[in-house]
Design a protein around this nucleic acid. Sequence first.
DNA 1: CGCCACATTGAAGGCAGTCAAAGGTGGTGG
DNA 2: CCACCACCTTTGACTGCCTTCAATGTGGCG
Lengths: 229, 229
Amino acid sequence: MSASVLGKAPIFRGLGEEELRQVAGVAVRRSLPAGETVFAEGDQAQGFYLVLKGKVKVFKLSPDGREQILRTVTPGQQFAEAAAFSGGEYPAFAQALTNCELLFFETERFRKLIAAHPDVAMGMIVAQANLQRHLVQMVEELALKEVGARLAKYLLDLSVRRQRATGQGDVVRLPMKKTELASRLGTVSETLSRTLRKLQEADIIAVKGSQVRVLDRERLVQVAAGLKL
Amino acid sequence: MSASVLGKAPIFRGLGEEELRQVAGVAVRRSLPAGETVFAEGDQAQGFYLVLKGKVKVFKLSPDGREQILRTVTPGQQFAEAAAFSGGEYPAFAQALTNCELLFFETERFRKLIAAHPDVAMGMIVAQANLQRHLVQMVEELALKEVGARLAKYLLDLSVRRQRATGQGDVVRLPMKKTELASRLGTVSETLSRTLRKLQEADIIAVKGSQVRVLDRERLVQVAAGLKL
DNA sequence: CGCCACATTGAAGGCAGTCAAAGGTGGTGG
DNA sequence: CCACCACCTTTGACTGCCTTCAATGTGGCG
């Protein structure tokens, strides 16, 4: 049953058994295979999704086909809330990266849920706040930093997260294909490749496949802060 | 009294007299002169602000001092909600562009307000959703479009808004200094200047000071969509 | 009238995207 | 187990947009 996963989702954290059952009651389950499109930009938005299992990427496409990943959504997180509550159309594309189990919340039904459960409203507000932080950071990095700095920042974030999870943060594993990482960083695979090499040649990191070892955290921090390579 | 303005703010729309009084009760008034800093990046965030009068800019600074404006906030809108609900520090700077009257909502008190008034929660969620759309659009434009397209888009938005307000959308007035517009568009004043000139030379617009006349809306739309100049 | 901030223009250089091709890698089926 | 294929990654050469630096133009205001 999805209730157990539901209870772990930040927006439903702290709800009781009975309440979770109500939440599950207004949602519709949807499962789809890797590669499938969840929705396309411009589609009519009738609600938002919560990921139960798998990974979903949310992205924009440029006129000439380049892709900018806005975020990748993992279990417990929701996406397309903005579209659902700001009305109209989805402002981006969403595609399953792996086989996925999703919950779909129709806007109106969710609205009623909120009216009855302020906790859920608060959870949603907090989740949106976190997403906003993420977006603000992307804007900052795209506008003000070059690819080297964005990559360094990304590697540091990864390393810190790994540190917390396993107590060992010097070796990280890139959680996606490099092409995808490139579009997450607002660049293309060729440039990412060159930038990784420059960091290697400066003895700041060592790369083997998708394993990255941090050799000189000090300087990696400097690069992330804007120091040129 | 601020209650009348409050009632017009999107997040408090639809509240009754009595409720608005409660809302006003948890807020603190703060007025400050043009140029004053509301908060700096890194300051401890204890709540968010609603603008009653004036204009506030929210922006990031790069290591070498370049400025990226995230948004300008006008009466009835709030800012720093993300910081307030996602905890910790303000992720950007905020500065008064004109003399301002602000309302400050302390996070905990607002939280209680929400618990009692689902309508307010919903208003906040919708407001955040709108902001998210705005941020997503900025990311898209910074990552995928060049300066010409961003400028064209900006002019069109301005023109549409003027159309709605005055029924006459062909002549618009840039609402800020060009240097500032440049940083809103993620570039510098020199580039903005050149880009305006290119649009002029293509007979798409006519510029006189901060007056811009749209001569060929058709092609302006194409440029906004990514057509090279 | 002259100052000052803002705006414009020119020249030069760099970062990053595109195109093209070669090298790797993993997965599948024989 | 190996060979093949598709896809990803890397590398090189080139181009172009945009930033930087520097100098000149301009408009408002005391």
